[in-house]
Amino acid sequence: MGQKTALYQQHLDMGGKIVDFSGWDMPLHYGSQKEEHLQVRASAGMFDVSHMTVVDVKGGDAKDYLRHLLANDVGRLNTSGKALYTGMLNEDGGVVDDLIVYAMGTPGSAGEWFRLVVNCGTRKKDLDWMDKHAARFEVAMTERPEMALVAVQGPQAIDKVGAVLADNQKSALAGLTVFHGAPAGEWFLARTGYTGEDGLEIMLPEADVSKFWQDLSAVGVKPCGLGARDTLRLEAGMNLYGSDMDERVSPLAANMGWSVAWEPEDRDFIGRKALEQQRLKGCPEKLVGLVLKERGVLRAHQKVIIEGVGEGEITSGSFAPSLGHSVALARVPAATATSAEVEMRGKRIKVSVVKPCFVRQGKQVFA
């Protein structure tokens, strides 16, 4: 038996098919992964993401510590609640983990602090890495296992969440812009997500989450499992740690270069020197999108052949319910252009090479 979130009984009561996910008993789906996927694209769906790890970082050196630890620059977080996506890198420039960091308190004041949300499968590794590099900073890190997390995603997500909130929570939600969060008592509402849709990620005490889940269900928000979460993020071109990048993969080879803050030049973040060398020499690989409109499903680890250029490998692939055909992310040689072949069942199947994003807000974004 794995670890269980505070919503475990609700998952069983709603017919969730429970599977092991990085040591957690989590719902894969509630009957139809495809229907859950399309529900998020058309209306709103809710995901239990309480297995994620929340870490609060406080202390006089909190900002300096995170500016050293992370490839993106928390110095850019100049308003309370503002968030950024970043990689946490090793000295060779590989991705230890990817995460979201929020500015809390009042930026620039003595009360400034930060909240990080990291992957559950890398929890121990991440905390050990963070502790290792905290030694020379005046900083205190507190894990928040008592916090539950619920993601509500889709074009109707914000309206439906607003319909079940208390007045003080509605005030926090009002005017909330993309990639910003706001506290409401012990709750924290953030306009972030992992589906390519608008929506919210809500952190709240475990004691409150069962009622919140039931209230959302009562206004038509459908529960969704890990299966739909994976196909939604794939359609949106969002990386999955351990598949599309890991400690051996540079963010420059994982379509994460945009999340590396090179300025100011004197910010010495972990992995900077290795990335600078890669950038100077030219990264030999890149992450691209593959589109297969014929029958068949692209899967991870299938070989990608680019005639006259070389070979690559699919890192994530699946049938895309929003499109009606298969798509994939693949790491290929940097010289790869607009076409390739994938080795499937002993045959070479032609695929189109596109930018690694397929669907945003329910619409196809590639030509």
Rank of each mutant, 00 (worst) to 15 (best):
A134C: 02
L69K: 03
V152S: 00
A62D: 04
G59S: 01
G15H: 05
G282I: 12
G312T: 11
K58H: 14
S316I: 05
A151Q: 01
D230W: 03
C224N: 00
R67M: 08
V288Q: 10
I306N: 07
S259F: 10
M104V: 07
P205W: 11
F47G: 00
H68R: 15
S250M: 13
A261T: 05
E343F: 11
E201C: 04
G154E: 00
A110N: 13
K132Y: 09
G181P: 02
P251D: 05
L127C: 12
K281S: 08
V260W: 11
A190E: 07
H51G: 06
W129K: 07
Q361H: 14
P251R: 04
T336S: 13
W258L: 09
Y102N: 09
K286E: 15
L252M: 14
K211F: 10
H29I: 00
V40F: 00
E36K: 00
F358C: 07
M245H: 12
L290Q: 01
C120T: 14
G312C: 12
G23H: 08
H325P: 04
C224Q: 00
K355N: 13
G193M: 02
D73C: 11
F319D: 10
R279Y: 04
M344L: 14
G227H: 02
S109Y: 12
A261N: 08
P321C: 12
V118L: 15
V74H: 05
L240Y: 07
D25N: 14
M141W: 10
G16Y: 00
H29E: 03
A334H: 09
S43A: 14
E143V: 10
K281I: 06
E307I: 11
G121H: 13
D56K: 02
R123W: 05
V54G: 03
W258F: 09
E36C: 00
V118M: 15
Y30P: 00
V327K: 06
S171H: 13
P223H: 04
S326W: 05
V101G: 04
A328I: 05
M141Q: 14
V49Y: 04
G362D: 03
R115A: 01
D128G: 10
E201L: 05
V327D: 02
G15Y: 09
L275S: 02
I314F: 06
A334P: 06
H68S: 07
G324K: 03
K34Y: 03
N90I: 12
N78D: 15
S171G: 11
L77E: 03
V353G: 08
R248C: 13
M344S: 12
G242I: 08
L226A: 11
E146D: 14
A300D: 02
L240E: 04
D92W: 06
S210Q: 14
G225L: 02
N72T: 08
P284I: 02
D268V: 05
K170V: 05
P145S: 11
R248N: 15
Y65I: 09
Q3P: 04
Q361I: 08
P284Q: 01
M203I: 09
G324I: 02
E206P: 07
F319R: 07
L323D: 08
V95L: 13
G310T: 13
G193H: 03
S339H: 11
V249E: 07
A62C: 09
R144F: 01
V332R: 06
V304I: 13
G108P: 14
W262V: 02
R248T: 15
M14W: 15
A110P: 15
L77D: 02
G16V: 00
E138N: 10
D48H: 01
G312P: 10
G175Y: 12
G289C: 09
M344V: 14
H37D: 01
G175Q: 11
